[in-house]
């Protein structure tokens, strides 16, 4: 992974994506350095999730060049997948398997040397090692979200893509998330996350981006009250 480190964490140029005749993202440029946290805000339907899903290879852009850790999204999708850890709206977990079984399953698909040991380590990071043997079905929503976060950390990714990770988490869990993010960027890794709760992330180190008109505007201070009143889609 070290040669890739030479490049930026994320480099997006002239990105364009539309759904049918609805434009979502266009003329979008974005770069993110190592050790940075980028918090994306914007009204519902502004394309935050779409941007994250493009960065994680789940959605194909219509036009534009995207590279993650120096790997081209189009030509080297599997290298990109190795570099990114994703927390989405879904947990990607099978509810009839235990937390450990879920993580070991994904660990094997990521070809980890010792999936069982790594799985327990990441579970400890999200404070759920005592639940390793429980079926996901029996866990609360917040706990399932935390297991999902553990799943994203499993393969030691260089870039974390978190789509509203704070949703459904209680106070202590959110604090834990904050610590984890701070520690992560301290390691020289990068994070892109979306949120509707800008108050929350104020204390976290990182820049704020606002998705508006299909583009990301970095560092523009907008009162958070405006965020929630954008036109819904």
């Amino acid at each position: 992974m070290s040669p890739a480190k030479a490049d930026r964490a994320v480099r997006v140029q002239g990105l364009e994506k539309s759904f049918g005749d609805w434009p979502v993202l266009w003329d979008l440029d974005l770069t993110l350095d190592w050790g940075q946290l980028l918090v994306l805000a914007g009204p519902n339907g502004s394309g935050k999730t779409t941007l994250l899903r493009i960065l994680s290879t789940q959605v194909k852009p219509d036009f534009g060049a995207v590279s993650i850790a120096g790997f081209d999204l189009k030509r080297q999708p599997n290298q990109v997948r190795r570099c990114v850890g994703v927390v989405g709206h879904n947990t990607f977990l099978h509810s009839d398997l235990t937390c450990l079984e879920n993580l070991v399953f994904y660990g094997r698909l990521f070809r980890l040397q010792n999936p069982g040991k790594t799985a327990l380590e990441v579970l400890a990071q999200v404070g759920l090692e005592h639940r390793a043997g429980h079926r996901v079905r029996t866990l609360s929503n917040g706990m399932q979200r935390r297991v999902s976060l553990a799943r994203a950390l499993l393969h030691d990714p260089l870039l974390l893509l978190l789509d509203e990770p704070e949703v459904g988490l209680d106070g202590p869990s959110v604090a834990m998330l904050g610590e984890l993010i701070t520690r992560w960027t301290g390691l020289g890794r990068s994070i892109v996350m979306t949120t509707h709760n800008l108050e929350l992330v104020k204390s976290w180190p990182g820049s704020q981006g606002h998705l508006d008109n299909g583009k990301v505007r970095i560092g523009e201070d907008r009162p958070s009250a405006v965020e929630e009143t954008g036109p819904g889609l």
Partner: peptide
């Protein structure tokens, strides 16, 4: 359908498996 609930297929496609 089993893969669809909770995005199991999505999760699969996010792994570097061919």
């Amino acid at each position: 359908m089993r893969e669809r609930e909770q995005g199991g297929l999505e999760g699969l496609l996010l792994t570097p498996v061919s």
